[in-house]
């Protein structure tokens, strides 16, 4: 059974089309990264999967059931974001106790050890925490719940580098011991490369790419060389990104489907071939299509005047 299935999912959110015909499916027990620019529709998608928002049209199924307002999906899913609303009357310890009552797979020992490790005081309240501490606490709730579907929406907001590193390790260790489906949306792909199995790239409300992390690392190829020489190799190739450089050279990122023969010919023609980092590739893939250029152009224009 698929953990998540989406087909032609549409959602309007505050007069904007947040999701446009989004279709994908995710197998059980995978760690999947959800990558996309700000406002690409990641959060909307995750909230629909968690059953917190209602889709406008299309099919969405979590373990074969429609998630919205569904008790079964709610019992088997936890959605963690940086705006978790816990009752202000409860102390942090009491919130963990409540988690234990509600989630059947809840691991209270793990919750308490992480709680101590990250230096929380049991008498503290959730609204008294700093941004990073709050994210850390939410992360503990998310990990300890051991929900078959665990969704983290930008879990590392405000965390410092050391805590982020601890979080990735904790997530990986707990996942290996208790495999479950984990969805993570993040802007720190370079830090999570070793953690993620699959990547969903969302761009302007639709799916741009869905592949395994290993494939993504080899998906793109960077070519640097004289413009006309490089151009001659780009016929019938999918160009992902192109940047003109000085002295008639250019840097082109293309989809990596070259044959060995083409490789050799390119090397002979003096083109530098370099791998493209997954993080950079995602940035290129989600470049706005309307030709605004880079942020540099904004400043160049003002100096022209």
């Amino acid at each position: 059974m698929k953990a998540i299935k989406c087909k032609d999912l549409n959602k309007r959110y505050y007069r904007m089309n947040a999701l446009n015909d989004l279709s994908f499916s995710i197998e059980e027990n995978k760690i999947v990264g959800v990558i996309g620019r700000n406002g690409a529709g990641k959060t909307t998608m995750l909230k629909i999967i968690a059953g917190l928002l209602k889709e406008k049209s299309g099919i969405v199924e979590v373990y074969g059931r429609k998630p919205f307002n569904n008790l079964f999906v709610s019992a088997n899913t936890i959605y963690i974001d940086d705006a978790m609303n816990f009752p202000t009357a409860l102390t942090l310890k009491e919130i963990l106790e409540e988690g234990k009552r509600f989630y059947h797979h809840w691991d209270h020992d793990l919750a308490l050890s992480l709680f101590d490790y990250f230096g929380f005081d049991s008498r503290q309240h959730h609204n008294e925490l700093s941004k990073g501490k709050e994210s850390t606490f939410n992360m503990i709730v998310g990990l300890a719940s051991r929900s078959p579907l665990t969704i983290f929406d930008e879990p590392t907001t405000g965390m410092d580098a050391a805590v982020r590193k601890d979080f990735y390790r904790a997530l990986l260790k707990d996942y290996l011991a208790h495999p479950r489906t984990i969805l993570l949306s993040t802007h720190h792909l370079e830090e999570m490369e070793d953690l993620l199995e699959e990547v969903l790239v969302i761009h302007e409300g639709s799916l741009r790419l869905h592949m395994s992390m290993d494939d993504l690392k080899e998906y793109g190829l960077g070519l640097t060389g004289k413009r006309d020489v490089v151009d001659s190799f780009l016929i019938e190739k999918e160009i992902l990104w192109k940047k003109e450089q000085a002295f008639d050279t250019c840097y082109v990122v293309v989809k990596n489907d070259f044959t060995d023969h083409e490789y050799r010919r390119m090397q002979e023609a003096g083109i530098q071939i370099s791998p493209v980092k997954a993080n950079d590739l995602c940035i290129y893939l989600t470049e706005p299509q309307h030709g605004k250029g880079s942020v540099d152009d904004v400043f160049d224009r003002s100096t022209d005047v």
Partner: peptide
Amino acid sequence: KAYREDDFAFVTNRKT
């Protein structure tokens, strides 16, 4: 909203 969202921190649907 604040109270309703408190419910949804843990397992629930609208009916419960």
